[in-house]
Write a protein that binds this DNA or RNA. Structure first.
Length: 264
DNA sequence: TCCGGAATGG
DNA sequence: CCATTCCGGA
């Protein structure tokens, strides 16, 4: 789990280094121009982030959300996708496809209640932010709080108490993940972040629209986190690496975190 | 309600 | 890949 991630490669100079860590499909550029359409979980997070006082809202547990008005949500989703005939039945089918990807799971017993697996939702696409660590301290986002239940946020093995008074909730994407140690670059954030050298942000739209601090969210495979990670360890018969691997060999890539080359 | 297979299309 | 559509089954 220890990756010398930062040793040889400068975050700023390696815009695409992170591609080695994540499968191609994780980089679905959200809705940047000329890219593919927004994904459902983007959309959900967007609504949740807006504190959409209607169709959907955060639940009682961390990452849990409740669809208060399924058909309205479906309508909104349909509008976004240009699918006038969208309904909750179909939308929920799409949600169920996330089970296998482990982006979501169902909170059983609670109607219309699902839960994000935030350990799979990580910040990527922004070279300077291969890890969550440096972002955690301050998250200036108007992200909707998870009601009452916020305890502490684990990040990189550091327990981070969430001060509800100061900040309702760190963005869910900040979760224990990947890189073990804070990178030097973290310092640059506070001081001079050399914005001029900031590489083009592939997901600028996503970032803006979701009010993500930086970088875009993406899903990523990580089986090295707590096995099952508190998930209903389903057998996952169809769990094949191919669904995550652009090249197939990224399960190991995590150990190395990044070796070299990122071009395809 | 919820699940997941199957077919299909972008 | 990521849904969308349809659907039989629990």
């Amino acid at each position: 789990m220890q990756c010398g991630c930062t040793s040889s490669v400068s975050p700023l100079s390696s815009p695409y280094w992170s591609r080695m860590l994540f499968p191609d499909w994780a980089y679905k550029p959200a809705w940047s121009p000329g890219s593919r359409q927004v994904q459902l979980w983007h959309f959900l997070l967007e609504l949740l982030g807006r504190g959409s006082g209607g169709a959907i809202g955060w639940g009682s547990e961390w990452g849990e959300f409740v669809i208060r008005d399924p058909e309205t949500l479906a309508r909104l989703w349909g509008e976004r996708k240009g699918k006038p005939h969208m309904n909750y039945d179909k939308l929920s089918r799409a949600l169920r496809y996330y089970y296998n990807k482990r982006i979501l799971h169902k909170t059983k017993g609670k109607r219309f209640t699902y839960k994000f697996n935030f350990s799979k939702l990580v910040l990527v696409n922004y070279p300077g932010f291969q890890t969550c660590h440096q972002l955690l301290p301050r998250v200036p986002l108007s992200f909707s709080p998870f009601s009452s239940e916020t305890g502490s946020l684990l990040c990189g093995g550091v327990d981070l108490p969430l001060d509800r008074g100061l900040q309702p909730m760190a963005h869910p994407f900040f979760h224990p993940y990947c890189l073990p140690k804070p990178i030097p670059f973290a310092r640059a954030l506070q001081g001079h972040a050399s914005p001029q050298s900031a590489p083009p942000l592939p997901c600028a739209h996503l970032v803006r629209d979701l009010r993500l601090p930086l970088g875009a969210a993406a899903t990523v495979r990580d089986d090295f986190l707590s096995p099952g990670g508190g998930w209903p360890a389903k057998s996952l018969p169809g769990w094949d690496p191919r669904s995550f691997a652009s090249g197939g060999r990224e399960s190991e890539a995590r150990n190395k975190c990044l070796g070299r080359r990122a071009e395809k």
